[in-house]
Structure formats: C-alpha cells, structure tokens
Design a protein around this nucleic acid. Structure first.
Lengths: 225, 225
DNA sequence: TATGCGACTTGAACGTGTTCAAAACTTTGC
DNA sequence: GCAAAGTTTTGAACACGTTCAAGTCGCATA
C-alpha cells in the first residue's frame, strides 16, 4: 500500500522522508483542515524544504490520495475482527459501513474538501479515474469479501456485480455523511441501519430463482453504467 | 435573474460594467476552460482592473454562480416553445432534459470543474447551500411547471414532492453527462430516453389510488432526506 | 460654482500551490 | 580512494486568487 505512486523513491532514506512527510501531513490536515494545511506548513513541520514535499507528492491532491490509502488500512483493521467471526451477511455489511464512518469521523470537517477534489472528473482523485483504480479495487475487494465469505447463497451472476454495487452504495453513504450536520452524525447511522436492512432483503429476494429474469435485466442495466 | 447577488450595483454605469465582466467571463470560460480563464485575463479582456472584477463578484466561484443563472435562462428559453404546446407529461420531461444537455454542451470540457466546485458542501455554489437557494428554487420551479401543466392526473401528495424528485433526478443526469465521454454524449441521451420512460411509468403507477400506501411511505422516506 | 459624499476603479501586495535549476548527498564502477 | 552517475534536497521564482488602501468620478446640495 505504501507504494511509490510518484515513482521516485529508490532509497531507504527516501522512503523515510516520504513517510515523514505523509505522517506530518495527516496531522496538519486533522488540525488545520484542508486549506489551513499549507504545503509550506507541512514541509516545515516535517523538517524538509518545500520542494521536497513536491518531490514525493506531485501535488497537494496526491498527498490526499496517499491519505486515502492510510484511511483504507485503518478501515480494514477496524472491520477485520468481526468479519473473521461473523458469517451472516447483514451484520457483516452493517459493520463495514459503520466502521467506515467511524474511521472517517476525525476528518469530517474537511471531508467536504476531499469530496470536492474527488468529484472533479479530471482529478486523479476522482474515484472513477484510472489513477485511483488501485484504491478503488481494494475497496471493492473488501465488499467482495463481505459477500463471498458470508453464509448467504447468492447466485453467481449477482455475486460478480454485487461488490461493485455495494461500493457505489457506500459512496452514496459517504456523500450523505459529508452533508450530515446532525450531532454525532446520527442521521447517517440511521440511514445505514435502514438501508442495510433494505439491501439485505433485496439480495435475498434477488437470489430467489424465480427472480432470475428480473435480476438479469437489472444487472444488465448496472453493467451499462 | 441579473440581480446583484454581490449587492453592490447602484448605478447604471455599474450595471454595465458588471454585465461586461460577466459577458467577457463567459467567453473566456468557453475558450480557455476554468483554470485557463484567470481573473486577470477576464478583467483585462473586459477592459477593467483586476480589483474591479472583485468589486462585482466576490470570487471566481461567484462569477460561476452568475454563469449558472445565464445558463438557466438559456435553458428556459430552449424549453418554452414545447412546454407551451405539449401537454403530455413524457414528452415534456424529455424535452426539458434534452434541452438541458444541449444548453450545457459548449461547456462540457470544464463542466467537471464546475461540478467540482459545486460539490463542496461549504461552497456557496453547492446546489444544496443556502446561497444557491434561489437558483435551486428556480430550477425546481421549472419541474413543477412540467408536471402541474401536464395533462397527467397526479395526486396532491405526490405533486408536492415530485418537482424536487425530478430536480434530484436531473442532477444525477448532469453528473452522468459530466463523466460521459462518448461521442456527442450519445450515452447520456440514451440514458435520458430510458429513464424518462421509466419515470413516466412510475408516476402513472404511483398515481393509482391502489398505490397510495406504498406511495406515502416512499414520499416519507424522500422527505426525511 | 464649490464642496462633500457615495459609487466605482485602480494596482500594488499578500499568501498560496507549483516548478525548476542548482546544490548536496549517496551509490556505483574502476 | 576517486570520479561519475544517480538520488535527494534546497529555496528562489512564477502565476494565480484575493484583499485593500487609496484614488477617481458623478452628482446633489449649499
């Protein structure tokens, strides 16, 4: 995960510098928000020159992409215990979604800026872009794990598209959360509870052999998008 | 619509200057894209000092908000003829959606940037923000016109929420269009054709008295979001 | 006509993200 | 051990969005 997306880390020392900059950046982001965290501030606090930060991260946005990676790791770690233990689909999905929001929590105030950047179709941070393909794959992979390792009997055709659908769903939840100003994001958690319930039911219904035709047409529509 | 959102136009001369800056900005935006169109370039081409542009538009983003206004006017003008003539809901909605994409067409290359800015929950351009409330209202108003002046017999409770739902739907289409790189945005037009068809059917079904309970619960869910 | 006031206009200055040529350091080949 | 090649680090410089103190203009009132 800590791979050199910038492709410019050949030395052990370089690796360390890169890590130091990233670590400092996360701190400053958390403390000052997105605009408050100037590249100069980050570089200074990390004890390197301004230009050096740009040697390891092409832009401020790329710094954020690395930040995403860290978040994903954290999210994985938070989910892992339950995913190892629980086999029922609904609680698995519920846990993944809740853990995600909890992981994101400290960054809510500037998650909006993140989203803003990610929303730009030309930005490397756009979740649909080629450049963030690895991050997206990893994320989808998590949802694949959620469904494949569950005890639910899900038909093959659905199984192949379901992780992507759930990934889209989780993007929607994040979008909601970003705009959710209720205390402790109670509304987001409520939305998660309800929507997971609905999704669980939908999957059961769609898995019914009688539903194969409807399921197929829905999957075809999905595939086109 | 050409109201002074910045609140600083009291003279006829001021009005003219403001209009000149806006007009020039649109040109430069179309020619150079969002980042290419620097405030300096706009000001220079408009024959005013840099600071003067900021006298009339608090920021580059506010300039874009005014730009939205212009687009909306254009869109309205494009729809009007058919809306005056046609009373059937499906072609009305279809025309509104197609005309929107056609109006947006010249700006596709930098519509992404627009969207990026608009996506920031803290930006005044965010379609959900207070500041863009008037623009949003106007837009929703258009959809209200689409349904109220149609010949479809739509129940009251649905009628009150439907314009907002359609507005959300149209936001989704725009989002798709921004990412649509197919030639002439054929995929977007196809999506519009299909989704309008589905929506039309859904409205018919939901308007059936037998469906009032399901309809009510769906409307309640909408209202909560 | 002179004077004052408010609307408009100016451009220098600030802080930002980003670039880049050059310096400093490290490794490699001999 | 030393030069060359590669890697990392530096900080000055650039263009941009934005701010602001100071200036100009038009016009109503004395």
């Amino acid at each position: 995960m800590t791979k050199a997306r910038t492709g410019l880390v050949k030395t052990d020392k370089g690796q360390q510098t890169r890590a130091a900059i990233l670590k400092t950046a996360l701190e400053v982001f958390r403390e000052q928000g997105y605009e408050g965290a100037t590249m100069r501030a980050i570089a200074e606090r990390a004890g390197v020159a301004l230009g050096n930060a740009y040697y390891y991260f092409h832009s401020k946005e790329h710094l954020i992409q690395a930040f995403y990676g860290e978040l994903h790791e954290e999210h994985l770690a938070a989910c892992a215990p339950l995913l190892d233990r629980e086999r029922d689909l609904k609680p698995r999905l519920l846990e993944v979604m809740r853990a995600m929001i909890k992981t994101l929590e400290p960054y809510h105030q500037f998650a909006g800026k993140l989203f803003k950047i990610a929303a730009d179709p030309h930005s490397p941070l756009n979740p649909f872009s080629d450049e963030s393909d690895p991050a997206r794959r990893q994320s989808i992979e998590l949802f694949r794990e959620v469904v494949t390792d569950s005890s639910a009997g899900i038909p093959k055709d659905l199984m192949s598209e379901l992780p992507y659908m759930l990934w889209l769903y989780h993007m929607g939840i994040v979008l909601f959360w970003i705009h959710d100003s209720s205390s402790s994001h109670a509304r987001t958690y409520r939305l998660i509870d309800r929507s997971v319930q609905i999704i669980d039911k939908l999957i059961r219904v769609a898995s019914n052999p009688l539903m194969s035709r409807l399921r197929k047409s829905a999957i075809r529509l999905m595939a086109e998008l």
